[in-house]
Structures are given as C-alpha cells and as structure tokens.
C-alpha cells in the first residue's frame, strides 16, 4: 500500500462555449496509492464524470497535472480501465468475444485469460450469450471483466451500478470487492450512493458543486467485509452526510 499509483495535482477544468465559460473543476488534488479503493461522492453536476474522463485520458483539455505511475496521462490506454454507467458492450459479440474484444480467442493465452476472467466475474455458462440475453448486472460484470483482462493499473468506475436495482447492486458491490481483493488493482469509483462508498472504499472523497472541488476526504478504517448495519457504519454515514451538506470547503482540512 505504499507507492502512489495515480496523482492528480492542481487540476482545473472549464467548458467553453462561444459566449460562456463554465468552471467545472477547481484545484483538484488527489492521489491514489497502489491497491487503494477510493470513492468520489458529490451532488449531480459537480464534475465527477468530468474528472474521471480526464484521468482516463478521454478528455485532454484541462490545466494541471495527472500522473499515472509518475508519467503524464496523454490519452486513453489499457492501464486505465474504464467502466461506464451503461455497460457499453458490443451488442453483436458474445460475452467471451466482448471480453476478448480486439484480441483473438484462438490465441490459447487469450483464451485462458478470458476463461479466468469469466470465472472471476462468475459468468460461467454464459460465454456464448449475446448482451441482449443477459441481465444488466451480468452485462456490467462482463464490462468489468473486459477491463480487467487488460491488467489495468487503475480501474475507473463511473456510477457502474447506478442503473441496477438495490438487490443486484448489493450483490455487485460484493463481487467488486472480491474482484478487487483477487486482482489488486487500484479503484477509483464515482457513486451517488453513500452506503456503496462506505461499503467499498478505503477513502471517500466528498465533492462540492459549482465549481466542483474537494470538500473533504474521509478515511474508512473498517475491516472487510463490512457490516452495513453496524454502529461504525452508521457513524460513517452521518459523517459523510454532514460533509456533503456543509456549505463551506474549509470544514475538514485534508491532505493528499
């Protein structure tokens, strides 16, 4: 848990139209250690997706520094796995072909890695199914397997379970924890769901809107697997909620 995987410093981002400039992210400073699980929570429109896209290299129009393993992020790459809110599977490809994507399943190495991933996300028996034949939760697991197959340094997840029902969501959170434990990737998760953030992460980043900035960073020092109904969990819930509701950015000092 020592070395830094991802380092974001003095990141500013504005959207410009012909007449207006919207300042979306202001002085974001955040670093992610290797194998760390960090969640970002904040009101709608505070720039969470924008931040994640910048880290993914999908948006290069920003000021500041984003370093992955000490090197500048210049564009999208397999080191930064990205899970979108919708699964974004290729509808014409079967589950296994979606996971392999541009790699050939005829290559025995790819074949065995794909099988490994299918086992990891517990989709045995659905290798040959098309996306239309599987549920939303299963599709999202395929998307996660597709990203993990490429051995990313960090997995970026933008509200990956937002579209799922509560039961499936809980189940997916448990699988994500298991995947994280087995795979040892750093995780940066955007969510709307306070319980999800507490259940999963080592640290929770609380953001403020207009302009989007970091208000607080809350450490979650509970052992995994966490008990959603325990007193400590409840206490953290209150802590995150009050951080979210505070007006000023200076409530909790934080170090990066």
């Amino acid at each position: 848990m020592a070395t830094t995987a991802l380092e974001i410093s003095h990141l500013n981002k504005s959207f410009r139209t012909a007449t207006t400039v919207t300042h979306v992210l202001e002085d974001i400073r955040l670093s992610l250690k290797q194998q760390e699980f960090v969640s970002i929570i904040g009101p709608s429109g505070c720039g969470k997706s924008t931040l994640l896209k910048i880290v993914a290299g999908l948006d290069a129009d920003y000021e500041g520094v984003v370093l992955l393993n000490g090197t500048d992020v210049t564009g999208p790459s397999k080191e930064k796995g990205f899970i979108f809110q919708e699964h974004r599977l290729f509808p014409w490809a079967t589950v296994e072909k979606n996971i392999a994507a541009d790699l050939s399943l005829k290559d025995p190495k790819v074949r065995s890695r794909v099988d490994e991933m299918i086992e990891l996300v517990r989709l045995q028996g659905f290798e040959k199914a098309y996306p239309k034949q599987i549920s939303g939760g299963m599709s999202q697991r395929v998307a996660i397997a597709r990203a993990l197959l490429r051995n990313p340094q960090v997995l970026l997840l933008d509200e990956p379970f937002g579209a799922l029902d509560a039961f499936t969501r809980n189940h997916m959170q448990e699988s994500l924890l298991e995947i994280w434990r087995q795979n040892q990737t750093s995780m940066l998760l955007v969510t709307h769901d306070i319980d999800e953030a507490i259940f999963l992460s080592n640290r929770i980043v609380v953001m403020d809107a207009k302009p989007g900035r970091i208000k607080a960073i809350i450490s979650v020092d509970l052992n995994y697997p966490r008990n959603r109904v325990g007193g400590a969990f409840q206490q953290l819930r209150t802590q995150v909620l009050s951080a979210l509701n505070h007006k000023e950015a200076d409530v909790v000092g934080y170090d990066i």
Binding site: L58, P76, K78, G81, F82, D102, R150
Partner: peptide
Amino acid sequence: SKLFDVARVLEFS
C-alpha cells in the same frame, strides 16, 4: 459514438 469511446479506452488499432 459511445462504442468508439470504448474502442479508444481499449486501445483498438
């Protein structure tokens, strides 16, 4: 175009 983003993230040739 969303699938193109996927292709970019997965570094398709």
